[in-house]
Every structure is written in structure tokens, then in C-alpha cells.
């Protein structure tokens, strides 16, 4: 009942907020950009809105863009799943058992400022320049938001709820599964959303960097595609197409996770 309410609320709010004034700036930018592009000589590599659209259609038709996108998404999903499994497991252990937390926290905290990109050279050393390196970086990036939010959620579970379950003769493992985990779910879902968003950023970075540093080997994926456009075919329109695709995918991922939250957590006020 509240599930439908929650699902209905979000689009309604967004619909009500639509305001044509918001389009002024983007449209103006597009027009200025197109006019500027028209003043350039015909063989200039500079991108223009018209050519970006043409390139987009061409890339979709040739199947290059869909296959690169599928490659990147596959890697993100694999890496995210790794980060999800490890982050939530370690997070639950740290949140539920103080000694675990006390021992692991200093180490986790000192790895947190190590950017995923700083791990890239190590990942290349360990896994080469293919998919495993990319997946491990994505997993590393997704791990921290998931871990931190899981720990937060689990350690904040209302003690009374755990006590109530104990007075009903519920076993420890079952309390973890049936009380602690559901109670921490809003935090975990938030961690998943944040984790997925950094994972998507990380895969682009990883593919871009692998493309740029591994002697030009095309490792596939949309980041790699961007690098090929930059370094070999000098196709700025292609680069802009990729940028837009990256942004749209990020937006869709975010919306997907928000919808999942509303659906899976109908009990939140």
C-alpha cells in the first residue's frame, strides 16, 4: 500500500518540478556551440552538435557503441558484485562485533584515501591489462561506500529490536538475518547506490588509463573507445558521444537504484 504511494510520489514530484526556464541555458550553449562550429573550416576536427548526433547514429548502427557499452557494463556489474559481497560481509561483521571493528577499522581507514586509480598500476602488475584488472578496480572502488554504510547501518540497529527477538527465542544467526540485516537495509541500499556510482566512474577511468598506458592495446569498453578516438582516429565528435553516453548511463543507474530503494523499502516513512 505504501509501496505504491512511494513509487507514485517520486515521478509526481519530478513532473511537478518541470520548468522551461531550465532549458534556456543548455539550449543557448548548444546554439552557440553549433554557430561557433559553423565558422570553422570544413575539415576541422572540432565537434559540433550536428556532427555529434551524426556520429552517434553511425556508432550505434555499426554496433561499436553498443558492444563497448555492454563490455563496460559487464565489467561494472562483475566488479560491483564483488564489492557488494565483500563490503556487506565485512561491514556486517564490523558493525555487529566490536572486536572485529576495532581490529579492522584502522586498516580500512588508511586504505580509504587511496584512490581507485592509484590501485590501477598495481592491478596491472597483478592482472595485466584485461578485464580482471578493470573488475578489481571497480570492486575496490565500490567496496568502501558499501562497507562504510553497512557498518553505519548495522551498528545503529535499535538494541530494543534485537532484545525483542531474543525474548522470542530467536537464535543469533537468525537475529542477524531477520533483524539486523533488514534494519540496516536503508543504509546498505544507500551504500549500494553510492558504490555503483563510483564503480561506473572507476571503470571509465580504468579503461581510459589501460588504453593509454598499455601500449595502445584496445581492451574494449567505452573508456577504451574514448581513448582510441583521442589517440588514433582523432574523432572529437566520438569523444563527446561517449561522454554523453557515460552521463546518461550514470543517470539511469542512479534512477534504477532509487526505484529499487522505494520498492524494496516500502516501510520507510
Amino acid at each position: 500500500m505504501s509501496a505504491t504511494a512511494a513509487r507514485a510520489a517520486a515521478p509526481a514530484r519530478r513532473g511537478a518540478r518541470f520548468d522551461p526556464r531550465g532549458l534556456v541555458l543548455p539550449l543557448l550553449a548548444l546554439i552557440v556551440w553549433q554557430l561557433w562550429a559553423l565558422t570553422l573550416p570544413h575539415d576541422s576536427p572540432a565537434p559540433s552538435p550536428a556532427r555529434v548526433i551524426a556520429t552517434f547514429i553511425e556508432l550505434v548502427r555499426s554496433g561499436d557503441l553498443p558492444s563497448a557499452l555492454a563490455m563496460s557494463l559487464g565489467r561494472v556489474i562483475a566488479g560491483f558484485a564483488t564489492g557488494l559481497a565483500t563490503g556487506v560481509t565485512v561491514g556486517v561483521l564490523m558493525g555487529a562485533f566490536r572486536p572485529v571493528r576495532r581490529v579492522l577499522e584502522p586498516i580500512i581507514e588508511s586504505f580509504r584515501p587511496v584512490a581507485p586509480m592509484a590501485i590501477l598500476p598495481i592491478a596491472i602488475l597483478w592482472f595485466g591489462t584485461g578485464t580482471p584488472a578493470a573488475v578489481s578496480i571497480v570492486g575496490y572502488a565500490a567496496f568502501f561506500p558499501l562497507l562504510v554504510n553497512t557498518v553505519h547501518g548495522v551498528s545503529r540497529v535499535d538494541r530494543k529490536l534485537v532484545q525483542a527477538a531474543r525474548t522470542m527465542g530467536v537464535s543469533r544467526p537468525r537475529i542477524l538475518a531477520k533483524v539486523v540485516l533488514p534494519a540496516a537495509m536503508p543504509s546498505i541500499m544507500l551504500g549500494a547506490r553510492l558504490g555503483m556510482s563510483v564503480a561506473w566512474t572507476a571503470i571509465i577511468a580504468a579503461e581510459l588509463a589501460v588504453g593509454s598506458k598499455s601500449g595502445g592495446g584496445n581492451s574494449g569498453g567505452i573508456g577504451s573507445m574514448m581513448f582510441v578516438f583521442y589517440a588514433y582516429s582523432v574523432d572529437l565528435n566520438g569523444i563527446v558521444v561517449c561522454m554523453i553516453v557515460v552521463g546518461v548511463v550514470a543517470l539511469l543507474i542512479d534512477q534504477l537504484f532509487r526505484a529499487a530503494e522505494a520498492r524494496l523499502l516500502p516501510w520507510r516513512q
Binding site: 530494543k160 532484545q163 527465542g169 516501510w267
Partner: peptide, 25 residues
């Protein structure tokens, strides 16, 4: 409990059935 300690993620019927489904009763 004084403040009820209901499980916010369970409906009324699932709260009532929590001990029956998960505990010794």
C-alpha cells in the same frame, strides 16, 4: 516493551508472527 519494539520493516501480521516463524514458539 515500553516502546513496543515493533519491527518497522514488517507489516502488522508479520510482526505478530515474527516469533512463531523465527523463534522457538
Amino acid at each position: 516493551f515500553q516502546d513496543y519494539a515493533l519491527f518497522p520493516w514488517l507489516t502488522v501480521q508479520d510482526n505478530i508472527g515474527f516469533g512463531l516463524r523465527n523463534g522457538t514458539p
